[in-house]
Simulated assay, not measured.
Amino acid sequence: MTKSTNIDTVNDVRSAIQNRRTVKKFKKEAVPTEQIIELLDTAVWAPNHKLREPWRFLLFTGDGRKKLADAIEAEMGEDNKFSANVMQVPSIMLVVLEEDPRQNIWDEDFAAVSALVQNFMLAAWSEDIGTFWVTKPFLYAPKFRKPLGIEAGEKIVGMVYMGYPEVIPSAKERTPAKDKLTLFD
């Protein structure tokens, strides 16, 4: 039994992938928490081996962003641009990987969590919500992790800034895949 493919759906998916932008300037208006949860419910459909679902999320909105800023200051001191910056972003989510000590499982799980983040960003873009996937050295620091309840054996795959875009950047060229393709036929 074959399911027919709707060409409009294919084009919508390709369009979303090619037109999504990393947004770094957001309007002050926050994305409703319920909408973020709905987007996560879409994102969890990422491929993940044996349905391990090796992820969890910490969401900081409103006054909750201060807890994230405090954790950054615990590691970097009060005079840093990152803690001030998170107070300007409407919502920030940490995406956490539950690490498995077996390298092959760890690799599969990291790929799954990365696919989840991409799913989330594409789903958000489809609802006019901009995102920015951020990784910083302080994400590894015990002084940052402890107050947020990030345990040993967990990896923060990234912080996802999100909100309604104030500015949408222009597209940047990509190298054509054929330039990086080795074909065996």
Rank of each mutant, 00 (worst) to 15 (best):
A111R: 03
S114F: 06
A16P: 02
P142G: 01
K24F: 12
I72E: 06
A141I: 13
M76F: 14
E53H: 12
F120A: 07
V13K: 08
E73R: 15
A112H: 06
I168E: 00
A30D: 04
D107F: 11
M1T: 04
E38V: 00
Y161N: 14
N104C: 04
V13Q: 00
K136P: 01
S83H: 09
S114V: 13
W45S: 09
T175Q: 05
Q88S: 13
T33R: 13
L39D: 06
T182G: 03
V44L: 07
I36M: 01
A84M: 03
A43I: 00
L39H: 10
N119P: 07
I7P: 12
N104V: 10
E98S: 14
D107P: 05
V13N: 03
R145Y: 03
D185C: 02
P32D: 04
E127T: 05
V117E: 13
I168Q: 02
K3I: 13
A43M: 05
E98R: 13
T182W: 04
S83G: 09
Y140D: 15
G149M: 02
N80A: 09
T182H: 08
A43W: 08
T42N: 11
E29F: 04
D109K: 13
A112L: 03
N119S: 02
I72K: 12
A171G: 15
V96L: 11
H49D: 01
K155G: 01
F26Y: 15
R174P: 11
D100E: 13
F132E: 13
A74I: 01
E98K: 14
K136L: 13
L68Y: 09
L68S: 11
I105M: 15
L40A: 00
I36W: 00
D109G: 11
A69V: 05
E173L: 14
L58E: 04
L51C: 02
K180Y: 01
A123F: 02
K178D: 00
G77T: 10
R52N: 11
W133R: 12
M76N: 14
